[in-house]
Amino acid sequence: MGAPFDFSFVLSFFPKLASTLGITLLIVAGSLVVGMLVGFLIALPRLYRIPALRTFSQVYVSFFRGTPILIQLFLFYYGLPEILKLIGIDMSKAPVLVFVILTYGLHTGAFMSEMIRASVMAVDRGQLEAAYAVGMTGRQAFTRIVLPQALAIAVPVFSNLVIALLKDTSLAFTLGVMEMTGKAQTLGSVTQHFIESYIALALIYLVVSFTLEKLLKALEVRLLRHELPDTPARSGFRIQKKGSYRRVVAGIGTEKGGAEL
């Protein structure tokens, strides 16, 4: 397949691919904004146990988690204009990027809602009680006390979602969006140096994911500054005194060895 391997092509492809990095990052950023909004809207009915909406949220999450993103892209790109046509909205002139960001946004939103729900529920109930006892309203208690702590808990999961999203955007080329992966294919076809093109592509993805990971790690450290590095919470196991009984809390981390918390 194609011309013999020539490393110089890898180097020459870097700037060409990097020029489309903007589109990739635009998709990531746009989807994150949509995803956060949708995530909150979907998480709230489940957090507050609102009967009918809660079921809708569950169905929503099941759909977006249970079907491949590629199928979702096709469904929205080809299906949505047809549905909107029925109510008299013409989407034929809308840029593809709109569909792409919408689909990735809705997709990420499903995962975000689970992240938000889990993080809010992970905040100790005593924190909320203390906030009420101090005289705060429900809203003050949520924004001042629960949310900041939930955010700190959510960051590691958020970090995973962002990196997964970055990699998932490589499928946007199937709808003809000229983001990095699309560009890499084109470069490969034109020069017949496919391998070199994909090596360069993989390296760029790697560098971007690595950078994002480090940035979010820094954010996590900042948000968790109240949990000090020398507190027992960082060791794998700790004995926590709770009223009249003691319990062992296991620290489970994503890193090898499971001790990072």
Partner: peptide, 8 residues
């Protein structure tokens, strides 16, 4: 509170 419940 018994568990202090300081804002962490």
């Amino acid at each position: 509170f018994q568990q202090y419940n300081l804002f962490k």
